[in-house]
Amino acid sequence: MRDVDEREMLFRRLSAALGRHGSPGGTPSSPAGPTPPPGKESGRISRFAEALTAVGGVVLSGTPEEALPVLGEALRAEGVSALFFPQDDAGAREVAEALIPFGPFTLTTGEEVRGGNPASTAGFRTADAGIAETGTVVESSNRGGTLLPGLLSDVHVALLPSHSVVERMDEAFALYAEDPPRNISLISGPSKTADIEQTLTVGAHGPRKIIVLLV
């Protein structure tokens, strides 16, 4: 096992470099851990909305009657023609299906999009959490959740339960610290690049727009 030998040699080099003799050191001392000040409950949602809006995201709230026409209009404006959502995400399904009258929108699936469906899509999914500090939507593969709606779509619509908005990043990571899923994805704005002449352009690889629907 070449790799194991090489690993052992690395640790010997590290021990020597650190002036240790014998096996690698005991318990490491812990640097000061983060001490987030308690966030004020009131205003957390508006801080979240403000931060996400500042980086080009859109935050919608209100009753379905109020939000759906606005959302439908926004998707049409982006040229979206097909909607997809995780099959086991009842909330996302409900919103997507309710949007059809505001279309013309057809329904597709993540697998079809992955298979190369060229339609301009909106991907729907219920987020795990929101972070007010940075206007971040947190999605993960926790409990088998799919990331495709926020990955392959042209417009990503994240459904965010208001009670799952936390103040700081620390609290969001703490949700997964025990047993992190394969993929924790923090989304803070549209996919963008400034690689050509330092000109900011959205939709580099992922969605060119992110819309958060507070539920």
Binding site: P86, G110, T136, S141, T146, P181, R182, L186, S188, G189
Partner: peptide, 25 residues
């Protein structure tokens, strides 16, 4: 790096796809 409060995407990737995961390596 770029003056953003946070980059658009942060991925924390831990191990391989789990039993029952929809996707992942």
């Amino acid at each position: 790096a770029s003056g953003q409060p946070l980059s658009s995407y942060v991925s924390v990737l831990t191990g391989t796809r789990r039993e029952g995961d929809a996707e992942g390596p």
